[in-house]
């Protein structure tokens, strides 16, 4: 465990707790893409199946359990408890356009052709694009609430910190996981445009809105 990975994990945790807290506090999930949240739920569940087969550390097990629980709670709030506030008209990204190709790719490009490994690979690939419905929704409505922007910033920071972590691990531990690295870089690139808007607008106290 190095500092980049720890701060990355904490940033990830902060992001998902922030989103859950915002929905709970405002009693509304307006502006939040339920489809991105369903895909993140799928990401955690398919990746953390090793909770049952492989013990790494208390930290690792606890974080995995929290991620799965928070993802399920968020999906529950969006699709059940605060369903009336869910902005489905603007959440029109087709999940199958991501899930089907990502599933196919996981079958073709993986470390080992076993069920658990293919599901792990699927989750890595899916995570890299799971935010697209959320970004698509923001581009459709032309704006995002400030807390939603903070959520995206924390989530993007987690990905960027993981890249630094991989550079560190490559040099100091000889660790190298090409699948995770390529998918992680793709994922981080998707946030670049958002990072730019966040720094130029939200950090200066303005709401995130896109130029018309």
């Amino acid at each position: 465990m190095n500092i980049f990975r720890l701060v990355g994990d904490l940033s990830h945790l902060l992001a998902i707790l922030l989103l859950l807290w915002k929905i709970w506090k405002t009693r509304s999930c307006a502006g939040v893409s339920g489809k991105s949240q369903i895909m993140f739920g799928l990401v955690y569940i398919t990746r953390y199946l090793d909770l049952f087969t492989n013990f790494i550390s208390i930290y690792n097990t606890t974080m995995k359990a929290i991620f799965i629980a928070v993802a399920i709670a968020t999906i529950y709030l969006i699709y059940f408890k605060f369903k009336a506030t869910y902005d489905s008209n603007h959440d029109t990204f087709r999940m199958e356009f991501l899930i089907v190709p990502v599933g196919g790719l996981a079958f073709l490009v993986n470390h080992d052709f076993t069920a658990l490994e293919i599901l792990w690979t699927f989750s890595i690939y899916l995570e890299s694009v799971a935010i697209l419905p959320q970004l698509f929704m923001i581009s459709k409505t032309g704006e995002a609430e400030t807390i939603t922007s903070h959520y995206l910033f924390a989530l993007g920071s987690y990905r960027a910190l993981y890249i630094v972590n991989w550079v560190y691990r490559y040099y100091f531990e000889g660790f190298f996981d090409l699948i995770a690295i390529v998918a992680g870089c793709v994922q981080t690139i998707l946030y670049c445009d958002f990072f730019y808007l966040y720094v130029t607008k939200v950090m200066h106290g303005k709401k995130l809105s896109l130029p018309a």
């Binding site: 994990d9 990746r47 090793d50 492989n54 991620f67 792990w120 660790f175 996981d177």
Partner: peptide, 10 residues
């Protein structure tokens, strides 16, 4: 390869 198979990252 062992390191990769253990997937110790989150």
């Amino acid at each position: 390869a062992d390191l990769i198979e253990s997937h110790d990252e989150l």
